[in-house]
């Protein structure tokens, strides 16, 4: 059914490994992003990372380093500005400036067209052999940190006041979470692209919360959807050569529409048979 290269070619092996790690991490981080109502962060942090990635391409170092530094820096900056006052304009302008800086670096690099393309929209060969180890280490760190922070972060997301009254260092927990978001964005961008990293972060959780409301089930479902999305995108990308980000966004949208219709259908049947309600 599938041609043999899909699973055996070196770049595809890397793509499968990197893609799966990214999918798992995005699903779990995305749960908290939705929980904390910070879709804006998910949208902007990868774009900050883009500037760093482009800079790294220009300086000829591993793009993951540039991506990590800029994405984490951007995430911490948003965390810092966000608590002082709700200032979306400042954050938006800083991040647009970061995008502009990314454009500058790409413009100064010779191979700018493909470079821009890979960083913005994702690439099948996005994960090179030197990056796969870094990706694995970073995603392991993020997963462990997320597991460690799990309960306090959840409580702080539900109510800052309760968390404070229980002696949780809320500020510290939130900043740690921002670092996790930054690192997640950094390893996701080479695969999915800076512009659509947001889609993989938000999409699976957005779909899952339409289907169930228990935290554990939502997490399990979004893991499933996320991995499914990335695997399908890799297969389709391999055969068509089209950008991975395109498939990720389209599959995400299809899943979302399907979940919406299921919810609508359930709602209608419940209206017909009211004794089944709640």
């Amino acid at each position: 059914m599938f041609s043999s290269g899909l699973f055996t070619e070196t770049f595809m092996v890397h793509a499968w490994m990197g893609g799966t790690m990214v999918a798992v991490l995005c699903a779990l981080v995305g749960f908290f992003v939705v929980m904390r109502d910070s879709a804006f962060v998910a949208h902007t942090v990868p774009q900050a990372g883009f500037a760093g990635g482009a800079g790294a391409v220009f300086l000829n170092v591993n793009p993951l380093y540039g991506l990590s530094v800029f994405a984490v820096g951007g995430a911490l900056l948003i965390g810092y500005l966000g608590t002082r006052e709700r200032n979306d304009v400042a954050t938006a302008l800083i991040l647009v400036a970061a995008l502009g800086t990314g454009a500058l670096f790409l413009g100064l690099t010779n191979k700018y067209a493909t470079g821009a393309y890979a960083l913005l929209f994702g690439q099948l060969v996005g994960v090179s052999s030197e990056q796969i180890v870094t990706t694995a280490i970073l995603s392991l760190i993020c997963l462990l940190a997320l597991a460690f922070l799990y309960r306090p972060l959840l409580l702080a997301s539900v109510s800052k006041e309760i968390a404070q009254s229980r002696g949780i260092p809320v500020r510290w927990v939130e900043m740690c979470f921002m670092v996790i978001v930054g690192l997640t964005a950094a390893i996701t961008v080479p695969v999915v692209g800076a512009l659509l990293c947001f889609s993989l972060l938000i999409g699976p959780t957005a779909v899952s919360i339409l289907l169930t409301s228990s935290s554990e089930k939502v997490m399990a479902l979004s893991l499933l959807f996320s991995v499914l999305t990335v695997w399908l995108s890799l297969i389709l990308g391999y055969y068509s050569g089209w950008p991975i980000g395109f498939f990720v966004s389209i599959i995400g949208a299809i899943l979302y529409l399907a979940a919406r219709s299921i919810k609508l259908f359930r709602y209608k049947t419940r209206a017909l048979f009211p004794h089944h309600a709640r």
């Binding site: 799990y150 309960r151 409580l155 919360i209 339409l210 228990s214 939502v218």
Partner: peptide, 21 residues
Amino acid sequence: DIPLRGRDLVALGLDGHRWGI
């Protein structure tokens, strides 16, 4: 649409301040 049931919220009262899952 926040994915949190009443039960989950109450459970956080028990051990919401503890680290780890």
